[in-house]
Simulated assay, not measured.
Amino acid sequence: MGHGGDVIQELTADHREVDALFARIEALPPADPGRRELADRITVELVRHSVTEEQHLYPTVRRYVDDGDDLADEEIAEHGEVERMLRELEDCRPGDGRFDELVTGLRSSVRAHADDEENRLFPLLAEVCSAAALEDLGERVRSAREHAPVHPHPSAPDTPPANGSLAPGTGMVDRLRDLLTGRGRQE
């Protein structure tokens, strides 16, 4: 990902990209090995997205949006549930009934989360932040994504300052793990 624009445009584009990946995985036959590759891509994109929101979007929401603490806490709780499902999905294989259940559950949870952000959180943020501030936030999200973890870490801290200090190191370890295992390697 990394689309350009302000934070709202950036994150909305992420939502569309992940939704398209879900559509692709659901279009394949149940035991198709391509479903595992797509599940891995979905995992990478969702983890990066969540981490960058937790590092940059939600602290801004807490600071500037009325009832921002409650909104950010709700969003972070939803991220935690998605990360738990992603972690479980990593251990499943296409053709396993649990794989299909998790993909269906993930798509539903992610869609509900994205709809909530787009219809409630983003408009509130747009009301209280200048265009320049939203552009800057979009750039910070894109930059953070480059170093964000690519595997779910449901027990990792999800609020500042701990989440920001651990993410780059965790991301490096995740990428090394993928290099050694061949995860994400294009054939």
Rank of each mutant, 00 (worst) to 15 (best):
residue 1 M to V: 04
residue 4 G to Y: 02
residue 6 D to S: 12
residue 9 Q to G: 05
residue 12 T to I: 13
residue 16 R to C: 00
residue 17 E to N: 03
residue 18 V to W: 03
residue 21 L to C: 09
residue 23 A to S: 07
residue 23 A to I: 02
residue 28 L to H: 03
residue 32 D to I: 09
residue 33 P to Y: 09
residue 35 R to K: 05
residue 37 E to D: 00
residue 41 R to K: 08
residue 41 R to A: 02
residue 45 E to H: 07
residue 47 V to P: 03
residue 49 H to S: 06
residue 51 V to G: 04
residue 52 T to V: 07
residue 55 Q to T: 01
residue 58 Y to I: 14
residue 60 T to E: 04
residue 68 G to K: 09
residue 69 D to H: 14
residue 74 E to Q: 09
residue 76 I to C: 07
residue 77 A to T: 14
residue 79 H to V: 05
residue 80 G to F: 06
residue 81 E to L: 13
residue 83 E to M: 09
residue 86 L to V: 09
residue 88 E to A: 15
residue 95 G to P: 07
residue 98 R to H: 09
residue 100 D to Y: 00
residue 100 D to V: 00
residue 103 V to C: 08
residue 107 R to L: 02
residue 109 S to Q: 13
residue 110 V to R: 03
residue 110 V to F: 08
residue 113 H to L: 15
residue 114 A to F: 10
residue 123 P to I: 15
residue 127 E to C: 01
residue 137 L to N: 11
residue 137 L to M: 12
residue 139 E to G: 08
residue 140 R to E: 08
residue 142 R to P: 06
residue 143 S to G: 09
residue 143 S to P: 01
residue 146 E to C: 04
residue 147 H to F: 11
residue 149 P to R: 15
residue 153 H to S: 10
residue 156 A to K: 00
residue 156 A to N: 00
residue 157 P to T: 10
residue 162 A to F: 00
residue 162 A to E: 01
residue 164 G to Q: 07
residue 164 G to S: 11
residue 164 G to N: 07
residue 164 G to V: 01
residue 165 S to R: 14
residue 168 P to L: 12
residue 168 P to C: 12
residue 170 T to M: 15
residue 171 G to E: 04
residue 176 L to W: 06
residue 183 R to H: 01
residue 186 Q to S: 10
residue 186 Q to W: 05
